[in-house]
């Protein structure tokens, strides 16, 4: 038994045949992972947009909104999943998506607010001078200018959500975390390695994708862009 666990012949860090044999399982795990990430991000974006709008309209609300979203951000995800389980049913989709969306709020709200605040007042005045109403100004002037900040926020939030979704396997949602836990319960390394690596790769791919979309949406910023 003195043999190192990692050197065991039948239990190496990664057993390639397993990946081939269980490809269907891996595939559906990736799909599930994406689905949870996208749902959480969409919900997070909608709520954040609302909160950011309130914070921009009524400046005094910014502090309590930031404080609340920061607090949510610090709650341990395992515990939050466990807490919502009795409310929505142990294995409900809501139980997974709500906390995941909650964790995106701090980053998204902060970035949306920062984006709109960064719009130079002179530009805003010019738009108003040209006879733009508030709605039109926000859509055609403020929003495009705020977009780089918002896209950065979405990138950060998406990447951390991908990492967080692995934890949702605790409450029986699929995703790559399911592979990690299934390996953990059996002390079988391959699914854990596959699950963890794929979650990192997925995060990087989504990050690159959103970055690309952001660049396409803001062609004028390409030359001025420094770092994210």
């Amino acid at each position: 038994m003195a043999v190192s666990l990692l050197a065991q012949a039948r239990n190496p860090i990664i057993r390639w045949e397993w990946i081939i044999e269980e490809w269907h399982q891996i595939q559906s795990a990736i799909f599930e992972h994406l689905r949870l990430t996208v749902l959480a991000m969409l919900l997070g974006l909608v709520v954040s947009a609302g909160l950011a709008a309130i914070a921009l309209r009524y400046r005094w609300t910014l502090t309590p909104i930031t404080a609340t979203t920061s607090l949510i951000y610090t709650l341990p995800s395992v515990a939050l999943f466990a807490l919502l389980a009795p409310v929505f049913g142990n294995l409900s989709l809501y139980t997974a998506v709500l906390p995941l969306a909650g964790y995106t709020l701090l980053i998204l709200v902060t970035n949306i607010v920062a984006g709109f605040q960064a719009v130079p007042p002179s530009v805003r005045d010019a738009a108003e001078g040209m006879g733009f109403g508030p709605a039109r100004r926000i859509w055609t002037v403020d929003l495009p200018l705020a977009l780089p900040f918002i896209v950065t926020g979405i990138r950060i939030a998406t990447v951390s959500t991908v990492g967080m979704v692995t934890v949702a396997a605790i409450i029986g949602q699929g995703g790559l975390g399911r592979l990690i836990f299934s390996g953990l319960r059996r002390a079988f390394w391959t699914p854990m390695t596959v699950g963890a690596s794929l979650s990192i790769i997925l995060a990087l791919l989504l990050d690159a994708l959103i970055l690309g979309v952001g660049v396409l949406l803001t062609p004028w910023a390409r030359r001025r862009r420094a770092t994210s």
Binding site: L6, A187, S199
Partner: peptide, 20 residues
């Protein structure tokens, strides 16, 4: 580095190290 680190499942790392 930011991107990778945010996506690394902390729990998986700790869990892999425990048996060792």
């Amino acid at each position: 580095l930011v991107s990778i680190s945010r996506a690394v499942p902390t729990f998986a790392i700790a869990a892999l190290l425990v048996p060792w």
